[in-house]
Amino acid sequence: SNREKAKQAFKELLRDKAVPSNASWEQAMKMVVTDPRYSALPKLSEKKQAFNAYKAQRE
């Protein structure tokens, strides 16, 4: 689905920018907000969900 693709793109973005798994949401956003993939997930709640999944995978 498109939403799954968007989630993957967002997680790839976090990986590409080397966002550490112990980063806070605010720290992570400063690192990725300028990338076009930041807008892949329109809802903030979805971004946070993908971010938390990313962190869980990295730990």
Rank of each mutant, 00 (worst) to 15 (best):
S1I: 12
S1Q: 03
S1R: 12
S1C: 14
N2K: 11
N2Y: 00
N2A: 05
N2P: 03
R3T: 12
R3M: 14
E4I: 13
E4S: 10
E4M: 05
E4P: 03
E4C: 01
K5I: 10
K5T: 13
K5Y: 10
K5V: 12
K5C: 11
K5H: 09
A6I: 10
A6D: 13
A6F: 03
A6V: 07
K7A: 14
K7Q: 14
K7P: 02
Q8H: 07
Q8T: 12
A9Q: 13
A9S: 11
F10V: 03
F10C: 02
F10K: 07
F10Y: 08
F10I: 08
K11W: 14
K11P: 07
K11D: 06
K11A: 15
K11F: 14
K11N: 11
K11V: 15
E12Y: 01
E12V: 01
E12L: 02
E12M: 01
L13Y: 03
L13K: 06
L13C: 08
L13R: 04
L13F: 01
L14E: 07
L14F: 01
L14A: 04
L14S: 06
L14V: 06
L14K: 05
R15M: 15
R15F: 14
R15H: 14
R15L: 11
D16L: 02
D16F: 00
K17S: 06
K17C: 06
K17I: 01
K17Y: 10
A18V: 06
A18M: 11
A18H: 14
A18C: 13
A18W: 04
V19A: 02
V19I: 04
V19F: 00
V19R: 02
V19D: 07
V19H: 00
P20D: 05
P20A: 04
P20Y: 02
P20R: 02
S21T: 14
N22R: 03
N22D: 14
N22I: 00
A23V: 09
A23S: 07
A23L: 06
A23N: 07
A23H: 02
S24E: 07
S24N: 04
S24P: 10
S24M: 02
S24V: 01
S24T: 15
S24D: 06
W25M: 10
W25F: 15
W25P: 09
W25E: 12
W25K: 09
W25Y: 10
W25I: 08
W25R: 10
E26K: 10
E26C: 03
E26Y: 02
E26V: 06
E26A: 07
Q27Y: 03
Q27K: 08
A28N: 05
A28R: 02
M29V: 11
M29T: 08
M29E: 11
M29N: 05
K30V: 05
K30T: 11
K30D: 05
M31P: 08
M31K: 08
M31T: 07
M31I: 10
M31L: 10
M31S: 11
V32M: 10
V32L: 10
V32N: 07
V33N: 15
V33A: 15
V33W: 13
V33M: 15
T34Q: 13
T34G: 15
T34N: 15
T34R: 08
T34L: 06
D35W: 00
D35R: 00
D35G: 01
D35I: 00
D35A: 01
D35P: 00
D35C: 00
P36M: 02
P36N: 05
P36Y: 01
P36I: 02
P36V: 06
R37P: 05
R37Y: 00
R37F: 00
R37C: 01
R37H: 01
R37K: 11
R37D: 01
Y38H: 05
Y38S: 08
Y38T: 11
Y38L: 03
Y38A: 07
Y38D: 07
S39H: 14
S39M: 12
S39Y: 08
S39N: 15
S39R: 14
S39I: 03
A40E: 05
A40Y: 06
A40G: 09
A40L: 13
A40M: 15
A40W: 02
A40C: 11
L41G: 08
L41F: 00
L41M: 10
L41C: 05
L41W: 04
L41V: 10
L41R: 03
P42E: 14
P42D: 13
P42T: 12
P42C: 03
P42S: 11
P42F: 01
P42A: 10
P42N: 02
P42G: 10
P42Y: 05
P42K: 11
K43Q: 12
K43V: 04
K43H: 07
K43Y: 01
L44A: 11
L44Q: 09
L44F: 03
L44M: 12
L44V: 11
S45I: 04
S45R: 07
S45H: 13
S45A: 11
S45T: 09
E46W: 00
E46A: 04
E46T: 02
E46S: 01
K47Y: 03
K47T: 04
K47D: 05
K47H: 05
K47P: 06
K47C: 02
K48F: 05
K48I: 12
K48Y: 08
K48R: 09
K48H: 07
K48W: 03
Q49F: 02
Q49W: 02
Q49T: 06
Q49C: 09
A50S: 06
A50C: 13
A50H: 02
F51S: 04
N52K: 14
N52D: 13
N52Y: 09
A53G: 08
A53P: 04
A53R: 04
A53K: 10
A53N: 12
A53H: 04
A53S: 12
A53V: 08
Y54H: 00
K55W: 00
K55I: 11
K55E: 07
K55C: 15
K55P: 06
K55N: 07
A56C: 04
A56D: 13
A56K: 13
A56S: 13
A56M: 11
A56G: 09
Q57V: 08
Q57I: 03
Q57L: 03
R58L: 15
R58K: 13
R58I: 01
R58G: 14
E59H: 09
E59A: 15
E59T: 11
E59M: 15
E59V: 14
E59C: 09
E59Y: 08
